[in-house]
């Protein structure tokens, strides 16, 4: 039940390599951080891990097999801007239940109010929307979670609430997490080890 990225390299067209030779092995229940300056390809790497993008070089394997192209993806990505990751024409309950029906426990842990389910996305704040995105991504078949600046746009209290919930669920399910953040203090709090992206560009 391992997520392994081997010698990953990526560039757009014939442009310069964004990064090359990135290796990462993620065990179940492990929390790994990624740091590096802006524009060094952290987000692209996250997208590769979650199957949104195919690497130019190298392979990503899950359980020693290539990532599935179809069906529920075992590696789920959570974006920085929740309002973009949500269909503005859907009510919140439809958004929440797109992948699975989150149980009561998850909703309570994330502090999702029952009353919010009947609202439209533009009637909720960014912090509230991000809770929905997290709940949506925590389906029973999610083995690894990629949090790409997941709480950057949120205030400290909401950030702490969401992380506490995610860590608790991850522990229970032995889920691995990749944390991308520029906040070194948060990184220290959360991660068991940290990869510096400066080494690959």
């Amino acid at each position: 039940m391992q997520l392994e990225a081997k010698d990953i390299g990526f560039r757009y067209g014939n442009g310069p390599w964004l990064f090359q030779g990135v290796n990462l092995t993620l065990e179940p229940g492990e929390i790994v951080g990624i740091t590096g300056p802006s524009g060094c390809g952290k987000t692209t790497f996250c997208r590769i891990l979650a199957g949104f993008e195919t690497p130019i070089e190298g392979t990503v394997t899950f359980n020693s097999a290539p990532l599935p192209k179809k069906g529920y993806h075992p590696v789920q990505l959570i974006f920085q801007h929740p309002e973009k990751a949500i269909n503005p024409r859907w009510k919140m309950h439809k958004i929440l239940n797109e992948g699975w029906k989150p149980n009561k426990e998850v909703l309570e842990l994330l502090g999702i109010d029952r009353e919010w389910l009947e609202r439209w996305p533009n009637e909720l704040s960014g912090g509230e929307l991000q809770r929905f995105c997290v709940a949506r991504a925590l389906g029973p078949n999610t083995r690894f979670l990629i949090a790409d600046e997941m709480t950057t746009m949120l205030d400290a209290i909401t950030q702490t609430q969401i992380w506490h919930a995610v860590i608790e669920i991850a522990k229970k399910r032995k889920m691995g997490i990749v944390v991308v953040t520029h906040e070194s203090k948060l990184m220290q709090r959360l991660c068991q080890r940290v990869i510096d992206f400066n080494d690959f560009s």
């Binding site: 529920y72 993806h73 797109e98």
Partner: peptide, 13 residues
Amino acid sequence: SAEYVQVSQKMGK
């Protein structure tokens, strides 16, 4: 190319 459509794909839709 919207993020929510990409998410939907990865939800197995």
